[in-house]
């Protein structure tokens, strides 16, 4: 189920928004498509373990509500059937999602508290990195990279 742009103002636009969200939630609960288990599992663990200063005993910054919120939104906006990432935190308080098992086929996306997505990928002999703003939809660049590393 693709994301619908949340730009309508009429009652009908609101009805469509709710119906789409219901359908998406229903599918996300399943084991196959289930990003919900990542949110309730690994992401919740990161919040629990890393939301206090110095969570790594090396002066790490805490994961903030904003970073957590954007990370949750990011996961929910992944297209159904996307490989689920592993979740972690960085000492600067950003939440990271990692895809790929092969040593030279990896993607790491960090979600910052101001809604920026910083990504870096190893693609065989090549590598790429960059930053994309997050507007509620996973940017195409990042989706393409997920497909290349999984």
């Amino acid at each position: 189920m693709a994301t619908i742009h949340d730009n309508g103002e009429s009652q009908t636009a609101g009805f469509i928004r709710h119906r789409m969200a219901d359908c998406s939630r229903q599918l996300q609960k399943s084991a196959v498509f289930g990003i919900e288990s990542v949110i309730r599992g690994e992401l919740a663990d990161v919040w629990e373990e890393c939301s206090q200063p110095n969570w790594d005993c090396y002066n790490a910054l805490p994961v903030t509500w904003d970073a957590f919120h954007f990370a949750e939104q990011f996961l929910r906006s992944l297209p159904l059937g996307t490989a689920t990432p592993s979740v972690g935190a960085e000492p600067d308080g950003q939440i990271t999602f990692d895809w790929g098992r092969a040593p030279r086929r990896r993607l790491s996306v960090s979600v910052s508290p101001d809604g920026e997505l910083h990504y870096a990928a190893l693609l065989g002999p090549g590598k790429t990195c960059g930053t994309e703003p997050f507007f509620g939809e996973v940017p195409r660049t990042i989706l393409n990279l997920i497909r290349q590393v999984r």
Binding site: G8, E9, A13
Partner: peptide, 11 residues
């Protein structure tokens, strides 16, 4: 048509 929308995403 109950709503027509033009949307610019432009930070």
């Amino acid at each position: 048509s109950v709503e027509a929308v033009i949307h610019w995403r432009a930070r």
